[in-house]
């Protein structure tokens, strides 16, 4: 009995070793950022393999968190709030808008289906070199300049194409028999969609939401073009302020980057619990 057991144990150990290797590779470059963040002024004059500050201090973190506006009112928490509101609203709207459309694309046949899929793909192939100014004009016309709502709309719309493709593929992976059974039991088509199909693609919804959160959380160009008040700035705009024309305050920039990434990891930790297998398995033959 020790044979297979040992193999299992060894395999487990191997998997953990591989994962720790991956974790190290993922964290190593971030260590440099952490080191810069913890150093009042990082000296890189000696080539080193392991980054660690000579005199760690939290000064840079204090600088970032303690930022105030001209009237000495605190700014950082407001701006964290802006980023959270914008990202979560973006994720919510993007998913809410994309889910029914993805369902229609996956389950129904309609005139213009192929064309709309092609158009959707096309929007992702086009580099956005020059769309900041047209967007500015558009939001100006809608009277949504310099508001978080305007930014959310733009972000959500740009997150929708990926969400549509992802959710459509996931709906297609759900056996149609599930919804048919529900409709036999008296559910409407929309009811089957809402009560059967949507819960079945929870993992994809989580990933889509995460994607929308991420893309808005770190977006800088549009946020800085469309927002014109310190109190409405999102975090990437705030961080980029530490980089000037001639020089950059890398310490606060690095400290801010780390602070900025923490809420995202929190959001991911919550969402990843939806990434569990077996939601649809077993429901239909297998």
């Amino acid at each position: 009995m020790t044979g297979p057991r040992f193999t299992r144990w060894a395999e487990g150990a191997l998997v953990h070793a591989a994962l720790w290797g991956a974790v190290l590779a993922a964290l190593y470059p971030v260590l440099w950022v952490v080191s810069t963040a913890l150093s009042p002024r990082e000296l890189t004059v000696k080539p080193r393999a392991i980054p660690w500050p000579s005199a760690p201090s939290l000064e840079n973190f204090r600088t970032v968190v303690g930022a105030t506006d001209a009237a000495k009112a605190q700014l950082f928490l407001t701006q964290v709030g802006n980023s959270l509101v914008v990202s979560l609203a973006t994720a919510f709207i993007a998913v809410a808008v994309a889910t029914p459309a993805a369902y229609a694309l996956a389950r129904f046949e309609f005139v213009g289906q192929k064309a709309s899929l092609r158009t959707l793909l096309a929007t992702q192939l086009f580099p956005t070199v020059a769309s900041a100014v047209p967007l500015y004009l558009l939001l100006d016309a809608l009277n949504l300049l310099d508001s978080r709502s305007g930014l959310v709309l733009v972000y959500a719309a740009s997150a929708v194409p990926f969400a549509l493709f992802q959710l459509r593929a996931s709906f297609q992976a759900v056996p149609p028999e599930l919804e048919e059974a529900a409709m036999v039991d008296g559910a409407t088509r929309f009811g089957a969609f809402r009560l059967v199909a949507v819960p079945a693609i929870r993992p994809a919804l989580a990933v889509t939401a995460l994607f929308a959160v991420m893309s808005s959380w770190n977006e800088f160009i549009l946020a800085s073009t469309l927002l014109s008040r310190e109190t409405s700035f999102t975090l990437p705009v705030v961080l980029q302020r530490y980089v000037g024309e001639y020089d950059a305050a890398w310490g606060p920039f690095a400290a801010g980057s780390i602070l900025v990434s923490l809420p995202v990891m929190g959001i991911f930790y919550v969402l990843q619990r939806h990434l569990v297998a077996g939601l649809t398995s077993g429901a239909v033959k297998g």
Partner: peptide, 26 residues
């Protein structure tokens, strides 16, 4: 197709206005 259009309307509106129009203008 009309029921499908109801499902797809919000996404279509959002993408047309905020993605396709700016790209076309660009």
């Amino acid at each position: 197709s009309l029921p499908s259009y109801a499902y797809a309307a919000p996404a279509t509106l959002a993408i047309t206005l905020l993605v396709i129009v700016p790209l076309a203008a660009g």
